[in-house]
Write a protein that binds this DNA or RNA. Sequence first.
RNA 1: GCGCCCGUAGCUCAGUGGAUAGAGCGCUGCCCUCCGGAGGCAGAAGUCGGGGGUUCGAAUCCCUCCGGGCGCGCCA
Length: 602
Amino acid sequence: MRQILDSLLRDALRSLEDSEGWTGLAGTSPELERSRDPRHGDFTSNVAMRVAKRYGRKPREFAAALKDRLAASELIESVEVAGPGFVNLRLSAEAIHGEVRRMLGEGESYGKSDAGQGRRVLVEYVSSNPTGPLHIGHGRNAAQGASLANLLRATGHAVNEEYYVNDAGRQIDILAASVWLRYVETLGNELPFPRNAYQGGYVSNIAARVVERHGAALCGDVAAVAEVFGPAAGGEQEGLAGDDAANADSSHDPDADARIDRLIAAIRGSAGDDSFQTVVDAALDEVLADIRDDLEAFSVRFDRWFSERSLTGGGAVDRALKTLEANGHLYEKDGATWFRSSALGDDKDRVVVRENGATTYLASDIAYHLDKYERGYDVMLNVLGSDHHGYVARLKAAVEALTGHGERLEVQFVQFVVLYRGNVKAQMSTRAGEFVTLRQLREEVGNDAARFIYVSRSNDQHLDFDLELAKSQSSDNPVYYVQYAHARIASMLRRMADNGLSRPDAGGVKLGALEEPEERSLMVALGRFPEVVELAADKRAPHHVVHYVRGIAAEFHAWYNAHRILVDDDDVRDARVTLALAVGCVIRNALGLVGVSAPESM
RNA sequence: GCGCCCGUAGCUCAGUGGAUAGAGCGCUGCCCUCCGGAGGCAGAAGUCGGGGGUUCGAAUCCCUCCGGGCGCGCCA
């Protein structure tokens, strides 16, 4: 719809350029927008105000000239020059009715476009460390990423979704050490449990599985390991901390770090590398299976789970580093190998190979992004928690250094989620051990409410998630409000069938029977859907879809309340039912984009 | 200290450089002989954090100050 009007305006501009000799005019974008105020028509263009001066005309004069050139399209009912020089267009009934027919004809495809022209996009999201269950913050990332992927697909991009599994590195060793400690504990050998080990109950569950499967075979010499804790080591806990302690311990304590590294080394030494690896694998398997199930239940599915280990093991990291080195981006200092990222926009240079010879997380990530690039993606879109924003400059520098296409890396940040129960903050507190997992949230409020609320705010806005509101089955709850509109339509259709009324044929129905102002306004609003989808995809902002569909539901409820649909007059009834069907179609498609169901009844 | 994000109605938030800044909740007062009241209508409520600037036009862009969040590891 918008595109057709847009091209009409462009034609008019070209015609003005030809006849008036106003060179360059044809290349001007008309900037056609939806009018906010219905008194300003349906669409409005500000082109006159922007360019009139260039051709020595007053904006209103220019607008009047433009108005005269606008072809007498059957889509336009009237053109008006208003205010300081706006050109306002009012859609004809033909245009509006044609759009409604299109909705019903296209059905679930309505709203899709080929704007992306098949450009290949890889959306990487969640990518949470497999060291524990997903929490509510990951939930927002998941909802955001999955919705973005849907939006990009709907706008003609070739999309793949990926979860990068950080299954190598120190955090995993710490997880394995944590499991091992619980494991020997289960077998009756209590050792101190370091504060910066993983505290969560799931660690003990994994340990229990290890006991089932391997008995005491992985213990090694527990007494030897105990020496790490020093002579004072007893059976007491070293301290209390939350589930996420290893990450949450923000004032990172070098002593504690060193101690846990010694612990890992001691376990490896006494139980053997193979045994340790068995624990690592068991821990990863359990945690990843849990994450996978959790996301699956949340309607979040990845095309690929990309293992970091596959990069280190497969030589990809070495290859990426060699390429960087060959191009002069690496240097040695203090026994480590550094990437000169500061030459490409980063604050400072970054270590890629540590003094001890181990590659860093960044080195793996560089290799991963090189791999993405080589797979031919035009856009590498990463959805990250906002606490990772400091990381982007170095990664972008690396992509630029390796490929010369740093601009292909795009990062969307998702701000934090704060949970409320009514007015009371229910935020997880690592100290108190109140750890709210995504699973707990889903079980409490349901998947639909969670997905909807997660993407209801702009992603760079903190999200206050009210559990009571999300659970409430009232109009206060935006999810139910929208779903109710859909269910109401389905219910009306059931009643029709009960009364022996057949559904109108979208082609033959007389939409001219829709004479109420609310009906015109609703039809026009429905016709905006494809533009909303494009906007949301373009801006990487799924919340536009949520706000839009709420508005549609509100207009529908108002209309439904004011006017009876199943009236005796066949023409009016058929027309109204058709409109209701169109509303249902748009609500369904909109909810589908953000992963929320559109129920027939509630 | 430096960098990124955010300050819009009492609260939670929309707002693609445009015309009189919008929703929802809450508050006030209304509407069921009626297709699902899980609904609707009406009203009150704002110096768009402050101050400069760019522009025909700024909540939107630039500068600066004041609040709040996050980040500044040979962690991931």
